[in-house]
Computed example of a mutant assay.
Amino acid sequence: MENNHYFYVLHCQDNTFYGGYTTNLARRLQEHNKGIGAKYTRLKKRRPVKMIHAEAYTTRSEATKAEAAFKKQTRRQKESYLKTHPSLPLPDQTS
């Protein structure tokens, strides 16, 4: 599992989506919620964030390409993508 590369989507407090790349979903989610993740999620109005989607890839390149493609979509296209693409089990988000 250590070789897995992930594309993930967060649902932010301000009702926006954030797409990202990581090799560790649980750690990355914690970083975003602590305000040490991406610039986008550092803003207080965007936190807390909830991970709503994740996909595994064998290479970093594949995962970052999926992230880039997601970010180029409109809100409606992103919502459709999330409905039609299966997600991995997500990390515990109760804390």
Rank of each mutant, 00 (worst) to 15 (best):
M1C: 09
M1V: 06
N3M: 04
N4G: 11
N4Y: 09
N4C: 08
H5L: 06
H5I: 01
H5K: 11
Y6I: 08
F7C: 15
F7I: 04
F7P: 02
Y8A: 00
Y8L: 03
Y8V: 04
V9A: 07
L10K: 02
H11P: 00
D14N: 15
N15T: 04
N15Y: 08
T16S: 12
T16L: 06
T16I: 03
F17W: 07
G20P: 09
Y21I: 09
T22S: 05
T22C: 05
T22I: 10
N24Q: 07
L25Y: 01
R27Y: 09
R28F: 07
R28M: 05
R28D: 06
Q30R: 15
Q30F: 11
H32Y: 11
N33I: 07
N33Y: 05
K34D: 13
I36T: 14
G37A: 02
A38Y: 13
Y40P: 07
T41G: 05
R42K: 15
R42T: 10
R42G: 11
L43S: 12
K44A: 11
K44S: 11
R46Y: 06
R47S: 05
V49C: 15
K50Q: 13
K50L: 08
M51H: 00
I52Y: 00
H53S: 03
H53Y: 15
A54D: 00
A54K: 03
A56M: 11
T58Y: 08
T58I: 13
T59Y: 05
T59C: 10
R60V: 02
R60D: 04
E62S: 10
E62Y: 03
E62K: 10
E62Q: 15
A63D: 05
A63T: 04
T64N: 08
K65R: 15
A66C: 00
E67L: 14
A68S: 13
A68K: 10
A69V: 11
K71D: 06
K71M: 10
R75H: 13
R76T: 14
Q77K: 04
K78R: 14
E79Y: 05
E79R: 07
S80G: 02
Y81A: 10
L82G: 06
L82Y: 02
T84H: 11
T84W: 00
P86F: 11
P91Y: 00
Q93D: 05
T94N: 12
S95H: 13
S95Y: 12
